[in-house]
Amino acid sequence: MRESPLAAVRSILEAPILDERKWSKVPAMPVDAVLLDLEDSVQPDRKREARERVVRQIADADELGEKLLLPRCNSLSTPYGGDDLKALGRAGATAIVYPKVETADELGEVRRILESVGATANLVPIIESARGVLELTSIAASPSVVGMLFGPFDLAVDAGITPFEGDGLFADAYHYAKSKLVFSGAAFGVPIFDFALTPQLKNLDQVSKAVDYSRRLGFTGMTTFYPPHVDIINDAFSPKPEQVAEAHRVVEAYESTLAAGGAATQLGGRAIIVQDYKSALTTLARARNFTGGVKR
């Protein structure tokens, strides 16, 4: 996996920074990263106000403890995107979430704008358009990309997808986009984050099933805008103590076999081969990431 500040992130909370009541609760929340939004949650006549507030928050990052700050600018297709990027660059943002990305060339323009104010930043594009899905390979390969988010609602609007079926997302319609995001992230070592979206956000059983589905599909974490989801996400994406213990046993057994000249072994009556060994190493790496905390 690329060196990424999102490697130790399980949960990302999208919090409305202009809502003082809601924002005041963020420091105490057990979330790994906070998305500082300048886009969807901010009405047009308050864009400048939100930008100034986000810049102040970046300067006062210690208020949120070890939480990673992820400011989300507006797209360059809007009147606000360029000014957002320049302000975030000057403020010293280390990672910027870029919405509705269409191509790798667009990310190149984002980098050029940042460079125009003497700044560089890691980029976290959101895949939420049909074109973005089709261009995923080149987007994931782009310099400075250290993570990618999935935007199911905007993708549904853009592609004409029916968002929900029963108690969850319309899985058949989303499966290609999600799978391509998983494979692109894996190919280029980029952490990838699904969005915890269900017909009833307060139905935590629904949310738990959706989060578990995304984890099993290959996502490395989840984004949400509903705080009660955070504990569910953290739990789902954290290796359990028994999983860590089993991973240690697999690694020790397989490495002992390799040292003795073998290529496979057994553990508790189960065959252990190289794929089991690699999976165990991944589990241990994720456990170390989460134990070590999020690095800004």
Rank of each mutant, 00 (worst) to 15 (best):
S4C: 06
P5S: 04
A8M: 00
I12E: 00
I12D: 02
E14G: 06
P16V: 04
L18R: 01
W23E: 05
V26R: 05
V26Y: 01
M29R: 03
M29S: 15
D37R: 06
R46M: 11
R51Y: 08
D60N: 14
E66G: 07
P71I: 06
R72E: 11
C73Q: 02
D84E: 06
A87H: 06
A87Y: 06
L88C: 10
A91T: 12
Y98T: 15
K100N: 10
T103C: 08
T103I: 07
E106T: 02
V110H: 12
R111I: 11
R111T: 08
E115C: 05
A119W: 01
E128H: 14
E135F: 00
S138L: 10
I139C: 05
A141R: 14
S144Q: 13
S144L: 09
M148G: 06
T162E: 15
F164H: 09
F170V: 00
F170L: 08
F170M: 05
H175I: 14
Y176K: 01
L181E: 07
F188Y: 15
F188D: 10
F193E: 02
K202R: 14
K202Q: 12
V207L: 13
K209F: 11
A210V: 07
S214N: 07
R215F: 11
G218L: 03
F219C: 04
D235L: 09
F237Y: 13
V244C: 08
V250I: 15
A264K: 12
I273E: 13
Q275T: 12
S279R: 14
L281W: 00
L284T: 04
